[in-house]
Nucleic acid binder design. Structure first.
Lengths: 340, 340
DNA sequence: CCCACGCTTTGCAACGATGCAGAGATGATG
DNA sequence: CATCATCTCTGCATCGTTGCAAAGCGTGGG
């Protein structure tokens, strides 16, 4: 029951432990006769290498951790899928953890008693923890950051160009002839860097088009969840002069907003056009389907994983700020007619 | 840089390795004087225990693996979240892997060279692999199965009562006065056990209500994805006598079906009522919002984790088939008016 | 016939931690 | 004052594997 070891197999085959190891690993040549005998013993005992021991000896675990705020947020689930796939092509497996955007949990993760030492490296998508703190806490563990939060030259970092993404989305709305364009999702405080970049892009687009920015149309939300999008939209509808389009900082907010619009009998996109960010699958089948700025998640994952592995084996250049591509997917929520 | 070990700390504090270990673990009493000195050394060197070494010695890794077909399927993402949370309350972390429903991948996972030995136990949600094969391959690793596929007394197992769930959904539609009720998602072949149980429940409900089962209204789908639900619905709409309600075997199928209905200008629920299974968050904000039979995912996760830990520490009873509760959440896609 | 060489096989040490048993010091007891 | 119990603290062995260096063995060349 307890699992057989190299020693058990060696005894049974009448050879040394080392020879069994050589057969298992195949790196060192073993004579046919012994190989056959050892292989038989391996099969009979159903030997499986103890990876914990192997890892200790080799100094590598073959595991990286991916830490996201919430796994049940589709963007992170889809990203996680890509990360797992990317890691697998390098022979790595991925441990997933979620912090609920709780700074405490994020801190714990890097603390004295954390399991971080079990992993060769960490992919972090931090929400609350500050750059300084992160730097102080990740002394030895290779880290690559995902998403926009925190960059100051201390860490490798992979994200889309959030300013450009927001600008693209807003310009698309402007191109449709919309003039009162609202924004849902600003986070004008220290840990809302991604949101702030998107606000910047939104403003740029309006200004470049010669439109004035109505501050009343920028509705902040503490998180990027459906119900917060729904509430924000309610507030916008309650205004004397509601918008004719909404740029939501992610798809969940957009879906929440559309939910409110549907209940209120407002037509999308005829009365109000809606665009989101993230390109989650959910948006392809919503009614109406959702126009969105989709980051190339596979590219993000591939870049993040290979950068991290580079840091792990020491071959990585100094911290880089990698930008992944994004593209606008036009669907019913702005175009009206089905496109894809 | 390389991370300091007990030996480094011991040398610095001028004590034995063992004493440092005692300070770190706190299990054995250490005099105040030494404790202070050791603690200082620990801090100065920023000592972090090497968990790989600790695990080797202790014979436990504190990790379990959760294997699901696809992480970006909302049901699995939401379940994974609950599993991670449940595991954390027991001091365990969770490694996530996905198989894409690929039997090969599932087999690989349990094979000779798998990483399964790195984990204290496995939570499996298998799609393709057969019971026999699973039994042959999981000799030593504690396993608990999630979902309906495979149960024959060899494994602990946690799921909802799929027959009852399907019956509840169908009876709800019957209760609304619907008579031509279609079913989307049957899988009449060996690995479609969950689907078949739902078909059974669907039939039971119709028969109990004295309705005849129209085999033409049972549309199989190879997987439970949105686009397959959309296609299945197209086929149903093309029939001379379309249904007046659809029971979809999961929420993604239902959302796909509603997508098709929206494009076709069919009103939900007026013309066709739709109900799904899974209770994913997406359904609360779809338009219309989706009536669904929601499994208690937190209960499933808690039961699965504590059962698995029981198997690991040997305190578990022989394999059990645990049933988690489910409940019907009535929303617009059947009720018409907003309920929650 | 001996030596050198190449190939296979082996033993030992080590990865970093913890279990165990015993050494040393201290205090309590008869 | 001797003996024993108590409390810290330490050294050694060990978890299962792999790196390293050397031993064993057969072969070909001189």
């Amino acid at each position: 029951m307890a699992g057989s070891t190299l020693r058990d197999v060696a005894r049974r085959a009448g050879v040394s432990i080392r020879t069994v190891s050589n057969v298992v690993n195949g790196s060192v040549p073993v004579s046919d006769e012994l190989r056959v005998r050892v292989q038989a013993a391996l099969d009979e005992l159903d030997y499986r290498p103890n990876l914990v021991a192997r890892n200790l000896r080799r100094g590598r675990s073959g595991m990286i951790a991916l830490v996201v705020p919430e796994l049940d947020v589709p963007y992170f689930a889809e990203l996680a899928r890509e990360v797992i796939t990317a890691a697998r092509t390098h022979g790595y497996v991925v441990m997933l953890d979620q912090t609920d955007g709780d700074g405490e949990r994020e801190r714990e993760l890097l603390g004295r008693e954390s399991r971080a030492t079990m992993f060769d490296g960490l992919l972090l998508s931090p929400l609350s923890i500050s750059a300084d703190e992160l730097r102080r806490r990740t002394n030895r563990v290779p880290v690559v950051l995902l998403g926009e939060h925190i960059f100051n030259g201390s860490f490798h970092h992979v994200a889309i160009d959030n300013v450009a993404a927001a600008r693209d989305a807003t310009e698309h709305l402007i191109g449709l002839g919309r003039r009162r364009i609202a924004a849902i999702g600003d986070q004008p405080y220290s840990t809302g860097e991604t949101a702030q970049l998107r606000t910047t892009g939104y403003r740029q687009a309006l200004e470049r088009a010669g439109l004035t920015v109505d501050e009343q149309l920028i509705v902040p939300t503490p998180r990027f969840h459906r119900h917060l999008g729904a509430e924000a939209m309610e507030r916008l509808l309650a205004r004397p002069e509601p918008p004719d389009a909404v740029f939501c900082y992610n798809d969940l907010l957009a879906i929440g907003a559309m939910h409110t619009l549907a209940r209120a009998g407002v037509r999308v996109p005829d009365d109000i056009a809606v665009v989101g960010v993230d390109g989650i699958q959910e948006g392809r089948y919503s009614s109406p389907s959702l126009t969105t700025v989709a980051p190339d998640k596979a590219a993000i994952a591939r870049t993040a994983v290979s950068t991290l592995l580079g840091v792990i084996d020491g071959s990585a250049p100094p911290p880089t700020e990698a930008k992944a591509p994004h593209r606008l997917l036009v669907r019913q929520s702005t175009a009206g007619t089905p496109v894809a």
